[in-house]
Amino acid sequence: MTGNQPGRAGSADHADRADRAVVVHPDADAVARATAARLLLALMDAEAVRTPVHVCLTGGTVGTRTLAEVARSELRDLVDWTGVHLWWGDERFVPAGDDDRNEKQARTALIDALPIPAENVHPLPASDEAADLDAALTLARADLSSHAGDGGPWPVFDVMLLGVGPDGHVASLFPGKQSLQAMDVAAVGETDSPKPPPARVSLTLPVLNASRQVWFVVAGADKAEAVDAVLRGGSDLPAARVSGQDVTLWLLDAAAAGQPTG
Rank of each mutant, 00 (worst) to 15 (best):
H54Q: 05
R141M: 04
A71S: 13
L114H: 06
A135T: 10
D99P: 03
A36F: 00
D100L: 14
A46E: 03
A136Q: 11
V156N: 00
V70T: 05
H169M: 03
A148I: 01
G151P: 10
A136F: 10
T51V: 12
D98G: 06
D167S: 01
G60H: 01
T51D: 13
W154A: 11
Q105N: 13
D80G: 12
D112I: 00
A36P: 04
A171Q: 00
V79N: 13
A130S: 14
V164C: 14
R101D: 00
R141C: 12
A48I: 03
L39P: 04
T64K: 00
E74A: 14
H169R: 08
T108C: 06
T138M: 04
G151C: 08
G63C: 07
I116H: 04
H54R: 05
W87I: 02
L144D: 04
A71W: 08
L173F: 01
A68H: 09
D80M: 05
V62I: 15
D134C: 04
G149N: 08
G63A: 07
A140D: 11
S73T: 02
A113D: 14
A130H: 10
D98V: 06
G163M: 08
R107E: 09
A135R: 09
A171V: 02
P125T: 07
V49D: 12
V49A: 14
S172Y: 04
A48K: 11
P125C: 09
L173D: 02
R101H: 03
A48T: 11
L57A: 02
R33S: 14
A135D: 15
T35P: 00
E129F: 07
G63W: 05
G59Y: 12
P125F: 12
R65Y: 05
V53I: 11
G97H: 10
I116C: 07
G63P: 06
F93P: 11
V164G: 04
D128I: 08
S73H: 07
W88L: 08
V55E: 02
T82H: 14
L39D: 08
E129Y: 10
A37W: 02
G165N: 08
S127F: 10
T66M: 15
S145M: 05
R50C: 07
G152R: 15
H147F: 08
L57C: 03
G63Q: 08
A148V: 00
D99Q: 12
E103N: 07
S127T: 13
V79A: 09
